[in-house]
């Protein structure tokens, strides 16, 4: 009969069998529970629980097994064998391995430290992220450079006009030379804007040490348009044209917004208000278009000759193609 039993049932059965055995042995010896209790000093309720197999009413752990062994030996039975039998059945499995749970101190009130640290870290990181996002927007390095003080601007203008004979517009560099007047450079925030003044004009206060045009263009270029060398030049009086000037040059007669960009899109090469007298040498590149706010205030010069590209109705003109050939052809077709 090897029917598998549920462990607790088997255990209860084994405990009950052991209890029966103990009771039979006690009765055979003609002892009462009281007499046994007196001799073994085990309390009567515990002896009764042992005999009736009520394992749960006995003190836990090793005590119950100890009582069983003492009782069995006191009655002349083999206590060890009985304990072993009971243990094998699983009745004492729980008793054998007492769970030791030490009393732990109550946790301190309040938020756990780990949570506080985590929350603090999250707040700090989000604060940094917010600062990084908002403080950087719409502000370029160039804007951070202070504008030319009014005093220096005046000096530049005063010194620039007499020096007009010695223009500083360099021959167009292969890359993309951008020539601007001192005023333009100053607007970009470069105090050394007039640095390109040529040696024949030593009276120009701020440009005395700078060597001739080509190298002089470099420092100014750094400030205003990193991609294209920008040459600050003294303002040229209307009509005086450099013989070496080639390509298209925009010259402002009055204050006007001018934008030069590629027709395909992309960042504009020039997009600002030109002051009277400022010039902009358009880089010799295909597909550039011009937009201008006040066409009457801007003069387009092709290879040193003004062309009437902007004649017509007043008001804003957009996307005029800057093609030297077409502009010149238009000039020839309609001489002034």
């Amino acid at each position: 009969m090897k029917r598998p039993l549920r462990p607790d049932i088997a255990a209860a059965e084994a405990a009950a069998r052991a209890g029966e055995e103990l009771r039979a042995a006690r009765l055979a010896l003609g002892l009462s529970l009281e007499e046994v209790a007196e001799r073994l000093r085990i309390r009567r309720p515990h002896l009764l629980a042992l005999e009736e197999g009520r394992w749960h009413d006995l003190p836990g752990g090793a005590y119950a097994l100890g009582f069983l062994r003492s009782y069995a030996q006191g009655l002349g039975l083999d206590g060890e064998a009985m304990v072993r039998r009971l243990r094998d059945s699983g009745a004492a499995a729980a008793a054998r391995r007492t769970d030791l749970v030490f009393p732990e101190p109550m946790p301190e009130r309040g938020v756990p430290t780990g949570l506080v640290v985590l929350a603090g870290a999250i707040v700090a990181i989000s604060a940094y992220a917010a600062w990084y996002t908002w403080s950087g927007s719409g502000e370029r390095v160039v804007d951070a450079v202070p504008p030319l003080p009014g005093r220096l601007e005046e000096v530049a203008r005063e010194g620039g006009l007499p020096a007009a004979t010695a223009r500083a517009v360099p021959p167009p560099a292969p890359e993309a030379p951008v020539a601007a007047t001192a005023g333009g450079a100053a607007q970009g925030g470069v105090p050394a804007g007039p640095a390109a003044a040529s040696p024949p004009a030593p009276t120009q206060a701020l440009a005395a040490t700078v060597p001739p045009p080509a190298p002089a263009s470099a420092p100014a270029a750094d400030a205003a348009a990193p991609a294209a060398p920008l040459v600050a030049a003294a303002a040229l009086p209307a009509g005086e044209r450099p013989a070496a000037e080639r390509g298209i040059v925009l010259r402002a007669r009055g204050e006007t917004w001018v934008s030069v960009r590629e027709a395909r899109g992309g960042p504009p090469l020039l997009n600002r208000i030109l002051r009277p007298g400022e010039t902009f040498a358009v880089p010799p590149r295909e597909g550039l278009v011009l937009s201008v706010g006040r066409p009457d205030a801007l003069e387009v010069v092709v290879d040193g000759e003004p062309v009437p590209a902007l004649e017509g109705p007043r008001g804003r003109r957009m996307n005029i193609p800057l093609d030297a050939g077409r502009l010149k052809a238009a000039n020839r077709a309609a001489p002034p």
Binding site: L40, R41, I42, R43, A62, Y63, L65, G66, F67, R69, S70, V83
Partner: peptide, 13 residues
Amino acid sequence: LRDATGLPVTVAE
């Protein structure tokens, strides 16, 4: 020990 103290005394396994 049982006689001296009047307590149940058991020997551990």
